[in-house]
Design a protein around this nucleic acid. Structure first.
Lengths: 94, 94
DNA sequence: CTAGTATGTCGACGTTCGCTTACATTGCCA
DNA sequence: TGGCAATGTAAGCGAACGTCGACATACTAG
């Protein structure tokens, strides 16, 4: 699974949380954040703090690996992203 | 490379930026953030927005992969973290 | 019907973000 | 020697963060 957007983070978090048999309150307690934070991040909040997100992932035993994975035949380069479009989409209302 | 802390993010970002032959200003322009932001994130700012970080990684063609890697026999779980201590350390002075 | 659990939402609050602008430092090169 | 690019730092500002506490909804027992 590749992580490219805050929505990916949210889905990943929720998925692993449920696999671990935890509810949002319990996960929040273990991470050291409020339950609200878990709710919002799972819904894909784009402005959550990276530090807290990393803590959440670690707490769930979900390591994040960066860089190309060798056993991954294809070229994994992101060819031509339209940054501006992404920016606008991420920036606007919500 | 595994990403567990904001410092890891910073190191990764800087490494890939330099490999791409970009200076901070140019990367910032491509991501759509200020040069200041790049400076701080590369230094490991723990409270950077996850959305911007993801955009930066994507802009550098550095995919982020989640999940256990099979060839990783051991449990990657962080056994018994003292969350409160971590919170305090991360929260306080800076 | 009542009680309990899990999830999502709201308003208020103090803190911090990321931005702009400006200045300092370092290294390179003409 | 001076100019120039790249990097790091600082102050000030509006906007958003994450927290607390309370409330609402849906679902599941009992």
């Amino acid at each position: 699974m590749f992580i490219r957007t805050p929505q990916d983070i949210g889905a990943l978090l929720r998925e692993h949380r449920q696999e671990a048999g935890l509810d949002q309150a319990e996960l929040a307690r273990r991470i050291g954040v409020s339950r609200q934070w878990v709710v919002e991040v799972e819904r894909g909040k784009p402005r959550a703090e990276i530090g807290l997100v990393l803590r959440a992932l670690n707490a769930l035993g979900t390591p994040l690996q960066a860089g190309l994975i060798p056993s991954f035949g294809g070229v994994a380069d992101t060819p031509d992203i339209d940054i501006d479009a992404i920016v606008d989409a991420a920036r606007l209302p919500r």
